[in-house]
Protein backbone atom coordinates (compact mmCIF):
# COMPACT_ATOMS: atom_id res chain seq x y z
CA UNK A 1 0.00 0.00 0.00
CA UNK A 2 2.76 2.42 0.93
CA UNK A 3 4.58 1.70 -2.33
CA UNK A 4 1.42 2.38 -4.28
CA UNK A 5 0.96 5.66 -2.46
CA UNK A 6 4.56 6.66 -3.19
CA UNK A 7 4.23 5.84 -6.88
CA UNK A 8 1.05 7.93 -7.11
CA UNK A 9 2.83 10.76 -5.31
CA UNK A 10 5.73 10.38 -7.73
CA UNK A 11 3.34 11.11 -10.57
CA UNK A 12 1.88 14.06 -8.70
CA UNK A 13 5.13 16.02 -8.39
CA UNK A 14 6.00 16.35 -12.12
CA UNK A 15 2.38 17.17 -12.93
CA UNK A 16 2.40 19.84 -10.25
CA UNK A 17 5.61 21.34 -11.68
CA UNK A 18 4.05 21.28 -15.15
CA UNK A 19 0.97 23.08 -13.89
CA UNK A 20 3.07 25.78 -12.23
CA UNK A 21 5.04 26.11 -15.47
CA UNK A 22 1.83 26.66 -17.43
CA UNK A 23 0.53 29.26 -15.02
CA UNK A 24 3.99 30.90 -14.99
CA UNK A 25 4.02 31.06 -18.78
CA UNK A 26 0.47 32.42 -18.91
CA UNK A 27 1.38 35.99 -17.97
CA UNK A 28 4.36 35.95 -20.33
CA UNK A 29 2.62 34.82 -23.50
CA UNK A 30 -0.13 37.41 -23.22
CA UNK A 31 -0.20 39.94 -26.00
CA UNK A 32 1.16 43.24 -24.74
CA UNK A 33 3.36 44.18 -21.82
CA UNK A 34 1.78 43.26 -18.47
CA UNK A 35 3.32 46.30 -16.80
CA UNK A 36 1.70 48.64 -19.33
CA UNK A 37 -1.58 46.80 -18.80
CA UNK A 38 -1.22 47.26 -15.07
CA UNK A 39 -0.65 50.98 -15.47
CA UNK A 40 -3.96 51.22 -17.30
CA UNK A 41 -4.95 54.35 -19.15
CA UNK A 42 -2.93 56.63 -16.92
CA UNK A 43 0.34 55.35 -18.29
CA UNK A 44 3.58 55.58 -16.31
CA UNK A 45 6.92 57.31 -16.40
CA UNK A 46 10.04 55.56 -17.67
CA UNK A 47 11.49 55.57 -14.15
CA UNK A 48 8.44 53.97 -12.60
CA UNK A 49 8.41 51.43 -15.44
CA UNK A 50 11.97 50.34 -14.69
CA UNK A 51 11.10 50.17 -11.03
CA UNK A 52 8.20 47.82 -11.80
CA UNK A 53 10.39 45.67 -14.06
CA UNK A 54 12.78 45.15 -11.16
CA UNK A 55 9.96 44.64 -8.67
CA UNK A 56 8.30 41.97 -10.78
CA UNK A 57 11.66 40.39 -11.61
CA UNK A 58 11.32 40.77 -15.39
CA UNK A 59 14.97 41.84 -15.62
CA UNK A 60 16.22 38.43 -14.50
CA UNK A 61 16.80 35.37 -16.71
CA UNK A 62 13.62 33.38 -17.37
CA UNK A 63 14.83 30.32 -15.46
CA UNK A 64 15.56 32.47 -12.44
CA UNK A 65 12.10 34.04 -12.77
CA UNK A 66 10.48 30.61 -12.82
CA UNK A 67 12.45 29.51 -9.78
CA UNK A 68 11.42 32.66 -7.90
CA UNK A 69 7.82 32.07 -8.93
CA UNK A 70 7.96 28.47 -7.75
CA UNK A 71 9.45 29.45 -4.40
CA UNK A 72 6.75 32.11 -4.06
CA UNK A 73 4.00 29.60 -4.82
CA UNK A 74 5.37 27.23 -2.19
CA UNK A 75 5.15 30.06 0.33
CA UNK A 76 1.61 30.95 -0.67
CA UNK A 77 2.69 34.03 -2.62
CA UNK A 78 0.67 34.26 -5.83
CA UNK A 79 1.24 37.95 -6.42
CA UNK A 80 -1.15 40.84 -5.99
CA UNK A 81 -4.32 41.67 -7.87
CA UNK A 82 -3.90 44.60 -10.27
CA UNK A 83 -7.33 45.87 -9.32
CA UNK A 84 -7.75 45.42 -5.59
CA UNK A 85 -4.01 45.36 -4.73
CA UNK A 86 -4.73 42.51 -2.31
CA UNK A 87 -2.75 39.25 -2.34
CA UNK A 88 -4.30 36.71 -4.72
CA UNK A 89 -3.87 33.99 -2.11
CA UNK A 90 -6.04 35.87 0.40
CA UNK A 91 -8.71 36.67 -2.16
CA UNK A 92 -8.85 33.05 -3.23
CA UNK A 93 -9.40 31.75 0.26
CA UNK A 94 -11.93 34.46 1.03
CA UNK A 95 -14.07 33.35 -1.91
CA UNK A 96 -13.37 29.63 -1.94
CA UNK A 97 -15.86 28.71 0.83
CA UNK A 98 -18.72 30.05 -1.28
CA UNK A 99 -17.76 27.77 -4.17
CA UNK A 100 -17.11 24.87 -1.83
CA UNK A 101 -20.50 25.27 -0.16
CA UNK A 102 -22.26 25.35 -3.53
CA UNK A 103 -20.26 22.39 -4.85
CA UNK A 104 -20.93 20.27 -1.78
CA UNK A 105 -24.65 20.98 -1.96
CA UNK A 106 -24.66 20.19 -5.68
CA UNK A 107 -22.85 16.92 -5.06
CA UNK A 108 -25.22 15.92 -2.27
CA UNK A 109 -28.12 16.71 -4.58
CA UNK A 110 -26.56 14.67 -7.40
CA UNK A 111 -25.75 11.64 -5.24
CA UNK A 112 -29.04 11.69 -3.33
CA UNK A 113 -31.04 11.53 -6.55
CA UNK A 114 -28.56 9.82 -8.87
CA UNK A 115 -27.85 6.72 -6.80
CA UNK A 116 -31.50 5.70 -6.26
CA UNK A 117 -32.33 6.56 -9.87
CA UNK A 118 -29.53 4.29 -11.11
CA UNK A 119 -30.54 1.45 -8.81
CA UNK A 120 -34.23 1.69 -9.74
CA UNK A 121 -33.33 1.76 -13.44
CA UNK A 122 -31.05 -1.29 -13.13
CA UNK A 123 -33.57 -3.32 -11.12
CA UNK A 124 -36.33 -2.52 -13.64
CA UNK A 125 -34.05 -3.06 -16.61
CA UNK A 126 -35.80 -2.55 -19.96
CA UNK A 127 -39.09 -1.59 -18.34
CA UNK A 128 -40.84 1.74 -18.28
CA UNK A 129 -38.99 3.12 -15.24
CA UNK A 130 -35.62 2.28 -16.70
CA UNK A 131 -36.42 3.98 -19.99
CA UNK A 132 -37.94 7.05 -18.40
CA UNK A 133 -35.05 7.49 -15.95
CA UNK A 134 -32.32 6.88 -18.49
CA UNK A 135 -33.92 9.21 -21.05
CA UNK A 136 -34.08 11.93 -18.41
CA UNK A 137 -30.47 11.22 -17.49
CA UNK A 138 -29.40 11.63 -21.11
CA UNK A 139 -31.31 14.92 -21.34
CA UNK A 140 -29.59 16.09 -18.15
CA UNK A 141 -26.24 15.01 -19.52
CA UNK A 142 -26.83 17.01 -22.72
CA UNK A 143 -28.08 20.08 -20.89
CA UNK A 144 -26.50 23.46 -21.58
CA UNK A 145 -26.54 24.41 -17.89
CA UNK A 146 -26.41 28.15 -18.53
CA UNK A 147 -29.72 27.83 -20.35
CA UNK A 148 -31.13 25.50 -17.71
CA UNK A 149 -30.34 28.18 -15.12
CA UNK A 150 -32.19 30.83 -17.11
CA UNK A 151 -35.23 28.54 -17.52
CA UNK A 152 -35.35 27.82 -13.79
CA UNK A 153 -35.11 31.54 -13.09
CA UNK A 154 -38.00 32.25 -15.47
CA UNK A 155 -40.22 29.61 -13.85
CA UNK A 156 -39.31 29.68 -10.16
CA UNK A 157 -38.16 33.25 -9.67
CA UNK A 158 -40.15 35.01 -12.38
CA UNK A 159 -43.49 33.24 -12.62
CA UNK A 160 -43.80 31.65 -9.20
CA UNK A 161 -41.65 34.04 -7.18
CA UNK A 162 -40.40 31.25 -4.92
CA UNK A 163 -36.66 31.79 -5.06
CA UNK A 164 -34.36 34.81 -5.29
CA UNK A 165 -32.41 35.40 -8.47
CA UNK A 166 -28.92 36.15 -7.23
CA UNK A 167 -26.51 36.33 -4.32
CA UNK A 168 -26.07 34.16 -1.26
CA UNK A 169 -28.42 35.85 1.23
CA UNK A 170 -30.88 38.72 1.47
CA UNK A 171 -29.32 42.14 2.05
CA UNK A 172 -31.46 42.47 5.19
CA UNK A 173 -29.16 40.19 7.08
CA UNK A 174 -25.68 41.04 8.07
CA UNK A 175 -23.36 39.02 10.24
CA UNK A 176 -19.61 38.44 10.36
CA UNK A 177 -18.21 35.56 8.38
CA UNK A 178 -17.03 32.83 10.76
CA UNK A 179 -16.63 29.74 8.61
CA UNK A 180 -17.33 31.29 5.21
CA UNK A 181 -20.18 28.83 4.74
CA UNK A 182 -23.38 30.85 4.59
CA UNK A 183 -25.54 28.00 5.88
CA UNK A 184 -23.45 27.61 9.02
CA UNK A 185 -22.79 31.31 9.54
CA UNK A 186 -26.47 32.19 9.26
CA UNK A 187 -27.31 29.57 11.89
CA UNK A 188 -24.54 30.83 14.18
CA UNK A 189 -25.72 34.42 13.85
CA UNK A 190 -29.03 33.45 15.44
CA UNK A 191 -30.93 35.99 13.34
CA UNK A 192 -34.44 34.93 12.57
CA UNK A 193 -34.99 34.03 8.93
CA UNK A 194 -31.32 34.23 7.98
CA UNK A 195 -30.91 30.49 7.55
CA UNK A 196 -34.08 30.15 5.47
CA UNK A 197 -32.92 32.99 3.29
CA UNK A 198 -29.54 31.31 2.75
CA UNK A 199 -31.26 28.03 1.86
CA UNK A 200 -33.60 29.73 -0.61
CA UNK A 201 -30.63 31.36 -2.30
CA UNK A 202 -28.89 28.01 -2.60
CA UNK A 203 -31.69 25.99 -4.18
CA UNK A 204 -31.50 27.04 -7.84
CA UNK A 205 -27.68 27.17 -8.12
CA UNK A 206 -27.51 23.73 -6.49
CA UNK A 207 -29.94 22.23 -8.98
CA UNK A 208 -28.15 23.85 -11.91
CA UNK A 209 -24.67 22.80 -10.84
CA UNK A 210 -25.81 19.32 -9.79
CA UNK A 211 -27.65 18.42 -12.98
CA UNK A 212 -24.77 17.04 -15.05
CA UNK A 213 -23.15 15.10 -12.15
CA UNK A 214 -26.61 13.75 -11.34
CA UNK A 215 -27.02 12.40 -14.86
CA UNK A 216 -23.51 10.94 -14.90
CA UNK A 217 -23.96 9.26 -11.51
CA UNK A 218 -27.35 7.81 -12.48
CA UNK A 219 -25.93 6.32 -15.69
CA UNK A 220 -22.84 4.99 -13.96
CA UNK A 221 -24.80 3.48 -11.07
CA UNK A 222 -27.13 1.72 -13.48
CA UNK A 223 -24.37 0.11 -15.49
CA UNK A 224 -22.36 -0.84 -12.37
CA UNK A 225 -25.48 -2.35 -10.81
CA UNK A 226 -26.29 -4.33 -13.94
CA UNK A 227 -22.81 -5.77 -13.95
CA UNK A 228 -23.01 -6.77 -10.29
CA UNK A 229 -26.55 -8.16 -10.57
CA UNK A 230 -25.24 -10.70 -13.07
CA UNK A 231 -22.71 -12.13 -10.61
CA UNK A 232 -22.98 -15.56 -9.04
CA UNK A 233 -23.18 -14.39 -5.44
CA UNK A 234 -26.33 -12.44 -6.26
CA UNK A 235 -27.87 -15.61 -7.66
CA UNK A 236 -26.84 -17.38 -4.47
CA UNK A 237 -28.47 -14.68 -2.38
CA UNK A 238 -31.65 -15.01 -4.45
CA UNK A 239 -31.57 -18.78 -4.11
CA UNK A 240 -31.27 -18.43 -0.36
CA UNK A 241 -34.54 -16.55 -0.51
CA UNK A 242 -33.32 -13.15 0.63
CA UNK A 243 -35.72 -10.27 0.07
CA UNK A 244 -35.06 -8.39 -3.19
CA UNK A 245 -34.62 -5.08 -1.39
CA UNK A 246 -31.95 -6.64 0.80
CA UNK A 247 -30.15 -8.12 -2.22
CA UNK A 248 -30.29 -4.94 -4.26
CA UNK A 249 -29.61 -2.54 -1.44
CA UNK A 250 -27.03 -4.43 0.56
CA UNK A 251 -25.30 -6.99 -1.62
CA UNK A 252 -25.39 -5.41 -5.03
CA UNK A 253 -25.17 -1.69 -4.32
CA UNK A 254 -22.18 -2.05 -2.05
CA UNK A 255 -20.11 -3.59 -4.78
CA UNK A 256 -21.53 -1.34 -7.47
CA UNK A 257 -20.41 1.67 -5.46
CA UNK A 258 -16.71 1.33 -6.28
CA UNK A 259 -16.87 2.66 -9.86
CA UNK A 260 -19.49 5.16 -8.77
CA UNK A 261 -17.17 6.62 -6.13
CA UNK A 262 -14.51 7.09 -8.79
CA UNK A 263 -16.97 8.94 -10.97
CA UNK A 264 -17.95 11.14 -8.04
CA UNK A 265 -14.29 11.98 -7.40
CA UNK A 266 -13.62 12.71 -11.03
CA UNK A 267 -16.62 15.05 -11.19
CA UNK A 268 -14.71 17.68 -9.21
CA UNK A 269 -13.27 19.14 -12.41
CA UNK A 270 -16.73 19.18 -13.98
CA UNK A 271 -18.13 20.87 -10.88
CA UNK A 272 -15.50 23.61 -10.90
CA UNK A 273 -16.05 24.21 -14.63
CA UNK A 274 -19.80 24.26 -14.03
CA UNK A 275 -19.28 26.65 -11.13
CA UNK A 276 -17.87 29.21 -13.58
CA UNK A 277 -21.19 29.31 -15.44
CA UNK A 278 -23.48 28.85 -12.44
CA UNK A 279 -21.79 31.52 -10.34
CA UNK A 280 -21.77 33.99 -13.22
CA UNK A 281 -25.51 33.58 -13.77
CA UNK A 282 -26.55 33.68 -10.12
CA UNK A 283 -23.99 36.35 -9.12
CA UNK A 284 -22.64 33.85 -6.60
CA UNK A 285 -19.52 35.39 -5.04
CA UNK A 286 -17.23 32.38 -5.52
CA UNK A 287 -14.03 31.65 -7.40
CA UNK A 288 -15.79 30.86 -10.70
CA UNK A 289 -17.28 34.33 -10.95
CA UNK A 290 -14.03 35.81 -9.62
CA UNK A 291 -12.09 34.16 -12.46
CA UNK A 292 -14.50 35.31 -15.17
CA UNK A 293 -14.56 38.86 -13.81
CA UNK A 294 -10.77 38.92 -13.62
CA UNK A 295 -10.44 37.73 -17.21
CA UNK A 296 -12.69 40.57 -18.30
CA UNK A 297 -10.83 43.09 -16.14
CA UNK A 298 -7.48 41.79 -17.45
CA UNK A 299 -6.45 41.23 -13.86
CA UNK A 300 -3.75 38.80 -14.92
CA UNK A 301 -2.18 37.89 -11.55
CA UNK A 302 -5.62 36.79 -10.35
CA UNK A 303 -6.21 34.68 -13.47
CA UNK A 304 -2.75 33.19 -13.12
CA UNK A 305 -3.13 32.40 -9.43
CA UNK A 306 -6.70 31.17 -9.73
CA UNK A 307 -5.78 28.89 -12.61
CA UNK A 308 -3.00 27.35 -10.56
CA UNK A 309 -5.09 26.94 -7.42
CA UNK A 310 -7.99 25.31 -9.26
CA UNK A 311 -5.67 22.90 -11.07
CA UNK A 312 -3.96 21.98 -7.82
CA UNK A 313 -7.32 21.33 -6.15
CA UNK A 314 -8.39 19.07 -9.02
CA UNK A 315 -5.06 17.23 -8.83
CA UNK A 316 -5.25 16.78 -5.07
CA UNK A 317 -8.79 15.40 -5.28
CA UNK A 318 -7.75 13.00 -8.05
CA UNK A 319 -4.81 11.87 -5.92
CA UNK A 320 -7.13 11.34 -2.98
CA UNK A 321 -9.59 9.36 -5.13
CA UNK A 322 -6.76 7.17 -6.42
CA UNK A 323 -5.48 6.48 -2.92
CA UNK A 324 -8.97 5.75 -1.60
CA UNK A 325 -9.55 3.51 -4.57
CA UNK A 326 -6.38 1.63 -3.71
CA UNK A 327 -7.67 1.15 -0.17
CA UNK A 328 -11.12 -0.05 -1.28
CA UNK A 329 -9.90 -2.20 -4.14
CA UNK A 330 -6.64 -4.05 -3.41
CA UNK A 331 -6.39 -5.34 -7.02
CA UNK A 332 -5.47 -1.83 -8.20
CA UNK A 333 -2.38 -1.62 -6.00
CA UNK A 334 -0.56 -4.44 -7.75
CA UNK A 335 -0.88 -3.13 -11.27
Amino acid sequence: MFGYFLSRLGMFVPTFLGVTLISFMFIRVLPGDPIIVMAGERGMTEERYQEMVVKLGFDKPVLQQYWDYLVGVMHGDLGESFVTKKPVWDEFFALFPATLELSICAMIFAVALGLPAGVIAAVNRGKFFDRALMSSALVGYSMPIFWWALLLIIVFSGNLGWTPVSGRIDLLYYFPSVTGFMLIDSLLSGQEGAFTSAVRHLILPTIVLGTIPLAVIARQTRSAMLEVLGEDYIRTARAKGLAPTRINGLHALRNALIPVITVIGLSVGTLLAGAILTETIFSWPGIGKWMVDSIFRRDYPVVQGGLLMIAVIVMLVNLLVDVLYGIINPKIRRR
Partner: peptide, 13 residues
Protein backbone atom coordinates in the same frame (compact mmCIF):
# COMPACT_ATOMS: atom_id res chain seq x y z
CA UNK B 1 2.75 13.66 -18.18
CA UNK B 2 2.08 16.63 -20.48
CA UNK B 3 -1.41 15.24 -21.13
CA UNK B 4 -1.94 14.80 -17.38
CA UNK B 5 -1.05 18.45 -16.91
CA UNK B 6 -3.61 19.57 -19.50
CA UNK B 7 -6.23 17.31 -17.94
CA UNK B 8 -5.67 18.87 -14.49
CA UNK B 9 -7.41 22.03 -15.64
CA UNK B 10 -11.20 21.97 -15.91
CA UNK B 11 -11.82 22.12 -19.67
CA UNK B 12 -14.00 25.20 -19.69
CA UNK B 13 -11.57 27.11 -17.47
Amino acid sequence: RVMDIILSFPSLL
